[in-house]
Structure formats: structure tokens, C-alpha cells
Design a binder for these strands. Structure first.
Lengths: 193, 193
DNA sequence: GTCTATAGACAGATAGAC
DNA sequence: GTCTATCTGTCTATAGAC
């Protein structure tokens, strides 16, 4: 007899906190707001996360873990190309503006060295760049991407474009996130104009 | 006999507030922090700006006014090209990481409709896109940029790339902001690979 | 595991003296 | 134009009952 996969209160808090932090960021959001959304008292919330800092870190790590799990299901690691990688992420983000906003806002906030997620985002940026560089390099070896391009440059360009377009997309609503990204990425293709 | 251009207290406050808001953003920064840096009491600061909201708006508008004035001196409006426009802005930003951070952080914060600068940044984004689109269109007419590209798409791509690269540049320090931007923009050139 | 109560610090804004 | 004093509200975190 299997036990039904019941969502723990901790998981529930993380999910709701992600939504609330996405609106006003970490620093300007009070634990009381999160607690009210969850339906517990504010000290009740602190029973599950000792400090506010611990909560935002748990939120970010949980989201990364879910993304990683989802990516593993959506893409065969041996078969990832720059174009498939970008498409899969962009299409997923399209349906989750709240999460995009959480990361856009928290990444900017965390530029401050005193921010609890400062180190987290520094590492995240470096890790993203390295991971995408590896994908680009393999595309070049397979003849899919121009070999006279520096793979590290392509990687940072693509990531910058994703972040930058997301800000406009969140701001305006007339932005074709997936279309613009794919059009951009196609220009790295061998044989592109 | 000319009167020496004396900096008013109001201007001094705006300049210092820009620096303080750049570190922790608008919402998480207290008026007391700004006042302490200026060297006045917190009510003394509110004598010059009735509310905190009024202060951030004054800061942003002042910075825009200074940028516009500086641009007018650096570029002949009849002679601006995509490449010169991007180079001039990127090289200026290189020497003002604090201001770049102020706009990066405040733009993200202001995605919230309740933020005092929400409308300001919405308009700013639209205005930037329109202005750069016009420059690209003129480049196309002069044969400097591929005519099979949509000028609105080029404009939003370039702005997204600028914003995105600035975030990495602020985060990591190993990012060649000007070099990466110019390399990107050159790909729109007629005759580019 | 969740609550009430509260400590202790800090917020933005106002009143009124000088 | 700048100050001190203060109002009123909010914040994170803790203590301790149930």
C-alpha cells in the first residue's frame, strides 16, 4: 500500500512565498504577508523557516530543483542544442510570468553584497554561463554553429538576451518572447545570413 | 557680473539619494539613510521632498535630464547611427556602475503596479524602443544596416542585450561590456558575416 | 505545529520651535 | 530651512501556553 504523495506544509509555504516575493521582491515583502496568504500566523511561519533569509534561499533552491527536474524530462542531455535549450526554457517561462519576475527582481536586488541571495546569484550566473558555453561548444563541434564564434561570448549573449527580453516582456505585453529569442539564436547557425 | 552656478541643497540631495538607492533599491532604503549621508535630519530631508515617492521620481528624472544633456553634447542628432549610439552609451555606463545599478534595480522593482516608478519605467521602455527604432530605420535607409531586418526587432534586441549584459557586468566583473555590445551590434551591419 | 503576546528596532510623516 | 520630539504603524524574532 503506497502512501499518497502529500504536500507538506513546508512545500506549501515555499510555493506561496515564491508568488508573494515575485510581486514586491524579498526586502520589501514582510513575513506577515506570506503568512496571511498561507493562512497561518507569522510566528507559525517562522516555525518552518527560522529566519526570513532562510525562506528566500529555500524558495530559490526549490525553484531551481524543479526546473532541473523538469529539464531532465523535457530534454535528452546527450541531445541538447543551443536552439532546443533556448526554446524549451523560453516556452516554459512563457507560462510562468510570476517565476520569471521572481528571478528578475531577486537577481537585481541581490547585487547588494549584503543581500542573503547575493552569493547564490553570483554562482548561478557563473554556472549558467558555463553550462551554456558547453552546449554551444558541442554545437560547434557538430557543425551546427559557426566555429569562428567564441562559445563563451555566445553563451553570455544568449543569457543576456533572455534576461533583457524578459524584462521588456514583463513590462509591456506586446513582446513575442519565444519568437524574438529563436530569431536571435538562429543567427548563430552555420549557413545563416 | 555672472552669478556662480551654485548647487542647491535639492540637487545635492538628489545626487546622494541616487547613490544610496543604487545600493539597496528604493523600497528597502529608508529616508533616514539618505538624510544621514546628506548630513541633515530626516524631517529636514522631507522639507525638500514632501514624500519618499517624490524623491525617487526626482532622482530618476534628474538622471534622465543629465543623460539627455550629455548625449546632446556627445552626438550630433543628425548623425547618430546604431553603432555610435550604442558605443557612446556603453562607454559612459562603464564609468558609472552606480547609476547602471540604480536603473537595473529600480526597473525590476517597478514591475509592481503599486511602485511609485511603475508608470515612469513603462513609458521609459516604450520611449527607448521607439527612439532606437528610428535610428535603426535611418541606418537602413542609409544602407548601413541590413534592410531585411525589422527595425523594431533590432531595437528591442539591442536594448535587451544592453540591459542583460549590464546585469552580468555588475555581478561578475569579468564582462567586457563595451566589447560585447559592439560585437553584437556589428552583426546588423550590411556586409557582416 | 500553531497560537497569543510582546519585545525591540525602525519606518514615513507631522507639529511646532527657532 | 533645519531642528527635536513624537505619532502611528510595521518589521523580524522570541517566549511561552496549548
Amino acid at each position: 500500500m503506497t502512501i499518497a504523495p502529500r504536500r507538506t506544509r513546508r512545500e506549501e509555504i515555499i510555493e506561496i512565498a515564491a508568488r508573494v516575493f515575485a510581486k514586491t521582491g524579498f526586502r520589501a515583502t514582510s513575513l506577515a504577508e506570506v503568512a496571511a496568504e498561507v493562512g497561518v500566523s507569522q510566528p507559525g511561519l517562522l516555525h518552518h523557516f527560522k529566519t526570513k533569509d532562510a525562506l528566500i534561499l529555500a524558495v530559490l533552491q526549490q525553484r531551481d530543483a524543479e526546473d532541473e527536474e523538469w529539464m531532465a524530462g523535457a530534454l535528452d542531455p546527450d541531445d541538447v542544442t543551443l536552439e532546443t535549450w533556448v526554446r524549451v526554457i523560453a516556452e516554459r517561462n512563457l507560462g510562468q510570468p510570476g517565476l520569471v519576475r521572481l528571478f528578475t527582481l531577486t537577481a537585481a536586488e541581490s547585487l547588494d553584497a549584503d543581500h542573503p541571495a547575493h552569493e547564490y546569484f553570483s554562482q548561478r550566473h557563473l554556472h549558467s554561463r558555463a553550462a551554456l558555453t558547453a552546449i554551444v561548444r558541442r554545437d560547434q563541434e557538430a557543425g551546427r554553429v559557426h566555429t569562428d564564434l567564441d562559445p563563451e561570448v555566445v553563451a553570455i549573449e544568449v543569457l543576456a538576451m533572455m534576461n533583457g527580453l524578459q524584462l521588456f516582456w514583463l513590462s509591456a505585453g506586446d513582446v513575442d518572447l519565444v519568437g524574438l529569442l529563436m530569431a536571435h539564436v538562429r543567427r548563430y547557425r552555420t549557413g545563416a545570413a
